[in-house]
């Protein structure tokens, strides 16, 4: 995966989380993985199509998701209900949207698909022949892992 793709996702993840949460946010060391990945309880997936294709996954545990959704709604949510799901989904959409905007300024043309959210236990993501970049982000409300896998269209 080309390095130019990576920074916009790292920056938008940190900046959008800071803006919507109004809290300190810290990026941990980025890593690359090429095997199937276990994911936490909640995964938001946004697809990318165009000159570059792939997907971005935002992965977090249930408690963190509830904390973040509560903060973004300015009310305490106790269940991971439709509103909480929509909130976390929109967070993924906003982060991806900003990264795609930046990449488009750099000359890469592509679009995003409406995000989807998956919830469950012991989920695993397998992408065939596509390397994923993992960007872990620590917030006061818990950890969010941003998992980016992109490749140029053959």
């Amino acid at each position: 995966m080309r390095v130019e793709y990576i920074n916009p996702f790292v920056e938008s993840s940190v900046n959008v989380l800071k803006e919507v949460l109004g809290l300190q946010v810290r990026r941990e060391n980025v890593s690359l993985k090429s095997k199937a990945l276990p994911v936490l309880d909640i995964a938001v997936i946004v697809g990318l199509v165009g000159q570059v294709e792939g997907r971005v996954i935002f992965d977090l545990d249930r408690k963190t998701a509830l904390n973040i959704a509560s903060k973004m709604n300015d009310e305490t949510l106790t269940e991971f209900d439709d509103l909480a799901k929509a909130t976390i989904t929109e967070l993924g959409n906003m982060i991806t949207g900003r990264a795609v905007t930046k990449l488009s300024e750099l000359g890469y043309k592509f679009d995003v698909t409406p995000p989807a959210i998956f919830t469950g236990n012991n989920m695993e993501i397998s992408d065939v022949n596509i390397e994923a970049l993992i960007v872990p982000i620590e917030t006061e409300l818990g950890r969010v892992e941003v998992n980016v896998a992109l490749r140029e269209k053959a």
Binding site: V20, M94, T96, G97, R98, T101, E105, V112
Partner: peptide, 25 residues
């Protein structure tokens, strides 16, 4: 009101007749 702020998209929306374009969040 969109998470995407791509210049071509903003231009297209405004040329089509949108009065303003606000980027989320």
């Amino acid at each position: 009101m969109s998470a995407l702020g791509k210049e071509d998209l903003v231009k297209k929306a405004l040329l089509t007749g949108a009065k303003s374009y606000i980027v989320k969040p």
